[in-house]
Design a protein around this nucleic acid. Structure first.
Lengths: 211, 211
DNA sequence: ACCAAGCTCCCCCAAAAGAGGCACCCCCCT
DNA sequence: AGGGGGGTGCCTCTTTTGGGGGAGCTTGGT
């Protein structure tokens, strides 16, 4: 075996939990072929550090203070369209992952993934190969079949989830109660729910809303 | 300065995310006065490993597969009423932390706590001193004032959160619809909500239900 | 023994929600 | 020019919800 001289994969970690950053850093730095060059604790920092260091891979938590994963993906890809971004989240079924992936993130991981999977995902993404955990791939297919909500419907859904009445929703969105009801009806149909409360449950399970 | 010979604090880590365990393990093992003696990935394992190793401190994630934090606290305190348990969670406002603390857990931490806070919490708990992060202490006081739900009301609330109608809830709990309505009314009053959907939002925010 | 709390059931009544339908306008795409 | 989707508005009708009570029954504690 001839030792191949190769530059290490340079990694930035972005997660708001110091514990998680430590864990990832420990894992990464133990590998011969990769190293952590910076760590960010929120979205803003992640963007700044990406710009400074231009790493081979950035590992991004989907939910972060200041700017969430989606926003960071957008901004970083503006800075460098070839950026290799690996999204990491606690919850599968998070609607935002699809948004990230369709915007150009290269891979997606669950936080409860075993060490080996995390490391191989980083390697894959660093070579510009997409990596998607199988559970996410499965969900993506399921999702395709299901109708998606319009922006307006999402606005209404958000208020429904807060427990607002149709009348209240109408006032806040400056529309009539009848229109609010129309939107709610559309939401119920699309989410295959019988009542607004069930719609909220479904939407939450699919990660379409944050409570 | 005379070096004081002291046994290290023996720690067990229980968390379903390998990454988090790695992070905590790295932090703990870097300290001169503590060491990780075992790691558990779910509630069952945590209980078994506690029994085997009898550590000075067990750090417990509140949300774990098989058995959640509350159940583990209960069981471990049955095994050893003097056990020093440090609860760790992602979310503040999680109702279960109060249950854990009142059952005899010695401390509570948020996962986004800085390293120093985590380490000092472990040291405090190991000496049988309670450690409660200030944000939790504040919430505990607020909580005192608020009325608590009865078990039956929690049963109903759970079904309400799934979007079930009163009639449906009545069938599942083998009571009349009238009684279901009575419970729902009590829930609305106690949670200070106008509609069932708002009640679900409030309950979720307070961590009284899982969706 | 008694009272309080919790669970159960009942009444009436007003308000809200849900189902079904129709219609207009605007914008984008073919 | 035509078509489709999205947003808006309105109609009727039934069902569900929510608010106000009252009233037994058991259980646990004082």
């Amino acid at each position: 075996m001839v030792a191949v001289i190769k530059r290490k994969i340079r990694v930035i970690l972005a997660d708001d939990h110091p514990v998680v950053r430590d864990g990832l850093a420990a894992m990464v730095n133990q590998q011969a072929d990769m190293e952590v060059v910076a760590e960010a604790g929120d979205g803003e920092e992640a963007i700044n550090l990406y710009d400074q260091h231009r790493p081979d891979v950035m590992v991004l938590d989907l939910r972060m203070p200041k700017r969430d994963g989606v926003a960071v993906v957008q901004r970083v890809l503006e800075i460098n369209p070839k950026a290799c971004l690996l999204i990491m989240t606690t919850y599968d079924g998070d609607e935002d992952i699809f948004q990230c992936l369709s915007q150009g993130a290269k891979g997606y991981l669950l936080k409860d993934a075993p060490r080996t999977e995390i490391l191989s995902a980083i390697r894959a993404v660093s070579e510009d190969r997409p990596y998607t955990s199988s559970s996410v791939a499965a969900k993506a297919l399921q999702r395709m079949a299901k109708p998606s909500l319009t922006q307006r419907e999402l606005d209404v859904l958000q208020l429904v989830a807060q427990g607002r009445s149709n009348k209240d929703i109408a006032r806040r969105l400056a529309i009539t109660e009848g229109t609010a009801k129309t939107h709610v009806k559309a939401i119920l149909t699309k989410l295959d729910a019988i009542s607004r409360t069930e719609a909220v449950a479904v939407a939450h399970k699919r990660g379409m809303i944050r409570l």
